[in-house]
Amino acid sequence: MKKLLLGLFSVTLVTACQKDATTHQQQRIITTVAVKNNASKISICHHDVTTNTWQTITISIAAWPDHAGHGDVRLDDQDNDGYVPTNKCGYGQMGDCDDNNAAIHPGATEIIGDGIDQNCNGMADDLPLGGDYQGGKIAYVLKSGDPGYDANTPHGLIAAPSDQGSGIPWAPIAPFAFLGTSDALGTGAANTKKIVDYYGDGNYAAKLCADLVLNGHDDWYLPSLAELNILYVNRFAIGGFDTNTNDIPNSYWSSTESDYTSAWFKFFNFGYQTTVTKYDSYRHNVRAIRSF
């Protein structure tokens, strides 16, 4: 009798375990199917034309093209960057202007010159004049027709955030020479090299710029006249210039000569530019720039 009961108990136990295993297997299958079914569903912000209201609904992804055609908005964050397109349902972190590219969303870093609005503020290449960049302040971004312009790679000028000196001569008192410096955009670096190569050590404008090491950059130079004019035009965005009409040292040197004894400078309070002897230091400031 005991053997019979023990056998029956064993059969019952095995049967129960088999049923339990079967139940778990069925649950796994159901869960897998559910996940697959959910993967084929997306949330959208839907415009109900009958009530003229916007509602968050779930649809089959296969039905999306029809909804897209009349202005509905996908809310499933297709690029997984944490943002969804702006929508009238007020759903999620809104503002993504390209939900197929994870590098494009509010707060993303803007890339200068590529024509793409990475940070979704409505402006492409919007690093503003005066914005911090590569050791200084953005002073200018080259445009088509400028020397050195590249449609695929942005280039431009960066100004040091403050002046490198005040009451500084263009060159030591002697000996003077005409070095053949240029007034054109893109020539300030070559001008500076010519000046420093000729005059060597000393406390003068080009040397101050050439010796400058600032925010990890050591390729600063004294701007040409055209580059100095750009600094003047954008002086308030860049900041730090002496523009006080009641302050005598409110002019800045360029690296451009007029002749062997004189060089060009510009007043930054009202924009007048003229020449003066190279060793004149009474009114002149120095602001270094570099290229990017």
Rank of each mutant, 00 (worst) to 15 (best):
A159K: 02
A159T: 02
P128F: 06
Q134K: 12
A139W: 01
S162R: 14
K137T: 07
T153C: 08
S162W: 13
G148S: 10
A159C: 06
A160T: 05
T153H: 14
D150W: 00
I138E: 12
D132G: 07
H155L: 09
L142G: 02
A151V: 06
G131M: 07
G135L: 04
G135P: 04
G145N: 05
S144R: 02
K143L: 09
S144Q: 13
P128E: 14
D150V: 04
A160I: 00
G148K: 08
L157E: 06
Q134W: 02
G145W: 00
Y133D: 13
I138T: 11
V141N: 01
L142T: 02
P147L: 11
A151D: 13
Y140Q: 05
P128Y: 05
G156Y: 01
G131Y: 04
K137P: 10
P161V: 09
S162V: 13
D132S: 14
Y133M: 13
G145T: 01
A151E: 14
Q134F: 03
I138M: 12
G135V: 02
G145I: 01
G130P: 08
T153D: 15
D150A: 10
V141I: 11
A159P: 03
A159Y: 01
A151I: 04
G156L: 05
H155C: 08
G131N: 07
G130K: 07
A160V: 03
A159G: 06
D163A: 14
V141C: 00
L129P: 06
Y149D: 08
S144V: 00
D146L: 02
A151T: 06
L157F: 03
I138F: 01
T153F: 11
D146M: 03
K137V: 08
G148W: 04
G130Q: 09
P128M: 11
Y140S: 08
A139P: 05
G135E: 07
G130L: 09
H155D: 14
I158K: 06
N152Y: 06
P161H: 08
H155P: 03
V141Y: 00
K143A: 12
